[in-house]
Design a binder for these strands. Sequence first.
DNA 1: CTTGACTCCGTAGTATGCTACAGCCCTTAT
DNA 2: ATAAGGGCTGTAGCATACTACGGAGTCAAG
Lengths: 132, 132
Amino acid sequence: MKQFTVGKLSSEAEINVETVRYYESIGLMPKPKRTESGYRVYSEADLGRLKFVKKSQRLGFTLKEIKELLFMRIDEETTCRDLKEMAEQKIKEVDSKIRELKKIKKALEILASQCHSSGPKSECPILENLEK
Amino acid sequence: MKQFTVGKLSSEAEINVETVRYYESIGLMPKPKRTESGYRVYSEADLGRLKFVKKSQRLGFTLKEIKELLFMRIDEETTCRDLKEMAEQKIKEVDSKIRELKKIKKALEILASQCHSSGPKSECPILENLEK
DNA sequence: CTTGACTCCGTAGTATGCTACAGCCCTTAT
DNA sequence: ATAAGGGCTGTAGCATACTACGGAGTCAAG
């Protein structure tokens, strides 16, 4: 069974050593076994966990939510449906962010289109609009 | 010419008093005149500036960028075109965020669709996928 | 056996944008 | 006159997610 030092683990997961320690401090990574001299010793399962964290993060989950996902992963009470709900909740959040950004984009486009890059700045419709 | 205390100003702009002071500390709001007893005194122009900040913020500009916008607003060298470029740059940023979120949304939807909310959690495709 | 890379710990700093608090002074209404 | 409700300052805290640093001990290669 493979074992890793914190440096190996973090390079495998393409993550900073400090970040691994940080994750440990907030309970996202478990407290690992130690060598006699105090060095952290990680297993393949720990690497999997770290990758789980990274992947979840890329999907827009916060560390707090990932902590919950990790708990659900081992919790007896958690059902498949619970996990699906978690994903669907996140979809809703992402979707509402998208809609908000689209509104912002539209507003900016209107602003930009009103300005013809000529004339004195004092009459620039962008400034005029922002000042309203 | 209307004058405001910090409390009046902040309630007019629907912003926290502390936030106004914070904006002053980072140079986003100017150091206002003071009464003899040291109270801040604001003008209508200051209120306009505060609203400018709020509106820009709603359009996705960071405080740092707003600081620049405020500078451009009074800078002689700044042209209308510069402002338009600033807006277009922000449009690009917003657009790239939207595209990123759409990717995330799609990935989450695939994840959720694979799970039929039944069967043991140990075989939940959501977990399986996240563990890869 | 030495040297350099790695690890340890705790604390503090970064970035963003506020928000809260303590202990005091000032203003305004009753 | 007094009390409530502002306002003042400086510092610290919150939330998120790291990143850096100092001063030490440890391990492995040559």
